[in-house]
């Protein structure tokens, strides 16, 4: 995060020229889009009827009502966009294979190095084998979170089905890996050998419970963070819709929340990935 923040001014300094920094231009653009968006949403908000949760409805992409498991929906659309973003950044961005990287390539390398170092530091040397899996989760969540910040887009990671599936994949994957690697020795993870003998059974119960609620907190953390941020923005947008010229205040508030959400979008992807690494470490080295 710090690298990304410090890397940007350097890039700006290289381009020089422009009087406005790209960041401020983006900010102004966001404020304008929000302003117009608030006027458009005014049409279907009568009075203070705010439906902050309406944005999370899963709608079929091409109309129709029934929702078979293969029907393309908005979720499908934005997952596809996430794939395109990932391919664009990590495959097309690096096709130059330059020794001195272009901007896109250096971002891709930054992401690679960031996740690689995280896996290596947290999971240990033998966790590096699972680096592509962690990278897949991280990159998908990162792309989905940031794509969800585009106005009128859809945040796939705000869906419990999505985050719970990923969390359960991690949970079962890690548990099966631990059982495969250590057999029943994997159960040592529940037996805190550092604690006094009397306390160990009680701690074991607590450890078992905390082990099995891992996927719950793992999934709801991501989903709750994304949902709450977008709902707050929607509520402020609802205020802006009925306030006329006074809408400047909620729009400024939306801008502030939007900045926070940009940070949250990254941090939640990071937290999801690092927790995956922690669980992986537990599976590879069960003893406390």
């Amino acid at each position: 995060m710090a690298e990304a923040a410090s890397g940007k001014p350097k890039a700006e300094a290289k381009t020089g020229g422009g009087r406005f920094s790209p960041a401020s231009l983006v900010l102004i653009a966001i404020i304008l889009v929000m302003f117009f968006a608030s006027y458009f949403t005014k049409a279907d908000v009568s009075g203070l009827q705010i439906h902050p949760m309406k944005q999370f409805v899963v709608k079929p992409l091409f109309g129709g009502k029934e929702l078979a498991f293969y029907t393309p929906t908005v979720v499908t659309l934005w997952m596809g966009v996430a794939i395109l973003a990932v391919v664009g950044l990590l495959v097309l961005g690096t096709r130059g294979r330059a020794i001195v990287p272009s901007r896109v390539q250096s971002v891709a390398e930054l992401l690679y190095g960031f996740v690689y170092k995280m896996v290596e530091d947290v999971s240990g040397k033998d966790g590096v084998k699972y680096f592509p899996h962690v990278m897949t989760l991280f990159v998908f969540i990162l792309a989905a979170n940031f794509l969800g910040l585009i106005p009128y887009s859809y945040t796939t990671t705000s869906q419990l089905a999505v985050t719970a599936t990923m969390a359960l994949l991690v949970f079962f994957g890690v548990t099966l890996l631990g059982l495969y690697k250590h057999g029943l020795g994997f159960l040592k993870i529940f037996w805190v050998s550092g604690a006094p003998l009397l306390l160990r059974p009680i701690l074991a119960i607590i450890e078992v419970i905390s082990y099995f609620v891992r996927p719950v907190s793992h999934s709801i953390r991501l989903m709750g963070n994304m949902m709450a941020g977008h709902a707050v923005i929607k509520v402020f947008a609802g205020f802006a819709g009925v306030m006329g010229l006074g809408a400047v205040a909620p729009i400024l508030a939306i801008t502030a929340v939007f900045a926070l959400e940009t940070l949250v979008a990254f941090i939640q992807a990071y937290v999801f990935a690092i927790l995956t690494c922690v669980y992986l470490r537990d599976a590879l080295h069960p003893g406390h």
Partner: peptide
């Protein structure tokens, strides 16, 4: 529906990566 498309997405991203 979501789980189906999510799995496809993850598999695609995994193989691309």
């Amino acid at each position: 529906n979501q789980i189906f498309w999510l799995l496809i997405t993850l598999v695609v991203i995994y193989f691309v990566l």
